[in-house]
């Protein structure tokens, strides 16, 4: 990282140069109009400075043409920024389908990060260079915001709800990780380091022998007794969860919902909210019993059930 007084932060994601470019364009626009105003004021103030108390300036009402010009021209230019910005903004929220996933849990005052392959870290984030990464984030308490200036992207981390964004890291190095949403006493201590690594280094790092999120999820699944009701063959008291993820679920009310992460999370914490058709609402709530990290692991497990026919992960 730069040691002196740099004027641009490090740039380490595919969005960074694009956001810098848009910022550059808006800076040019801003400098132009600000200079125009400052110069006009300066020149007019000098040229028309009061020469005597008896000065009798003319009466000028205004000018429709000028009004239209200085309303519409800057406005039209800013609309370009609007479109440009929205285009980029939508891309940040449309993850590449091939993106690998990383799970972030924010908590007063630390970042807990889980990699599907197993490794868990606190206040450190390891990602491989050149591979799209999608972050799925949730908070255990108040609102936080996950911010890596070198990526030029941040997103709030909310309690009770998953939020996402994605980037492709482009530059190997060590970068700041900040919490950007004020979250209490040690807000400014809720910081860490992002390591963008060579792919091969990352592979080595990630296969450090820890058990995968899916495996942990499977353990929790039996530990909490889910397995007693949710048999893979669908003959238990609850529906089979095999192939559930991303499928369309028909509810008692007749509504059809997509079984995404948020749905699975809600089914565990608040089973009565959406009851599956043809089933009794007998599932107990696990609110307060399973940590957010545990929930992410169970979800990872449920997701894995869809890969193989018959849910034969066991």
């Amino acid at each position: 990282m730069n040691k002196a007084m740099p004027l641009l932060p490090d740039s380490a994601s595919q969005f960074a140069p694009e956001i810098d470019r848009l910022m550059g364009a808006e800076i040019i626009f801003s400098v132009f109009f600000t200079t125009l105003i400052f110069l006009s004021i300066g020149v007019l103030a000098l040229k028309y400075r009061r020469k005597s108390e008896e000065d009798a300036p003319p009466h000028i009402h205004g000018s429709l043409i000028l009004e239209l010009a200085w309303t519409l021209i800057p406005f039209a230019i800013t609309l370009v920024f609007f479109v440009w910005g929205v285009h980029l903004y939508f891309r940040v929220y449309t993850p590449d389908p091939s993106a690998m996933e990383i799970f972030v849990t924010g908590k007063q005052w630390m970042w807990k990060i889980q990699h599907p392959e197993g490794p868990r870290e606190i206040n450190e984030l390891h990602v491989p260079v050149g591979r799209p990464v999608k972050f799925t984030m949730i908070s255990e308490d108040v609102i936080h915001s996950f911010f890596v200036p070198a990526f030029r992207v941040k997103n709030d981390v909310l309690p009770g709800r998953y939020t996402n964004f994605w980037v492709t890291p482009t530059q190997v190095g060590k970068y700041h990780l900040f919490c950007a949403e004020y979250c209490g006493t040690q807000h400014s201590g809720m910081i860490g380091t992002t390591y963008v690594m060579e792919q091969s280094d990352y592979e080595k790092w990630v296969s450090g022998g820890e058990e995968s999120m899916t495996l942990r999820g499977e353990q929790l699944f039996s530990q909490y007794g889910c397995a007693t009701c949710h048999l893979p063959d669908g003959k238990g008291r609850g529906p089979s969860l095999v192939g559930l993820f991303n499928s369309m679920v028909k509810l008692q009310t007749g509504a059809v919902v997509k079984a995404d992460e948020a749905y699975i999370r809600e089914s565990i914490l608040n089973p009565r909210a959406k009851v599956v058709e043809k089933f009794q609402p007998v599932m107990p709530t696990f609110q307060g019993l399973i940590s957010e990290e545990g929930l992410l692991q169970i979800i990872a497990y449920v997701k894995s059930l869809e890969k193989e026919e018959g849910g034969a992960q066991q």
Binding site: F15, L22, M23, E26, Y89, V92, S145, F147, K154
Partner: peptide, 19 residues
């Protein structure tokens, strides 16, 4: 005002928000 326009640009706010 001009810096407000920057903040109102959705993509720039991704970086600038809460800084």
């Amino acid at each position: 005002g001009v810096t407000g326009v920057m903040l109102a640009t959705t993509a720039l706010d991704l970086h600038l928000h809460d800084t």
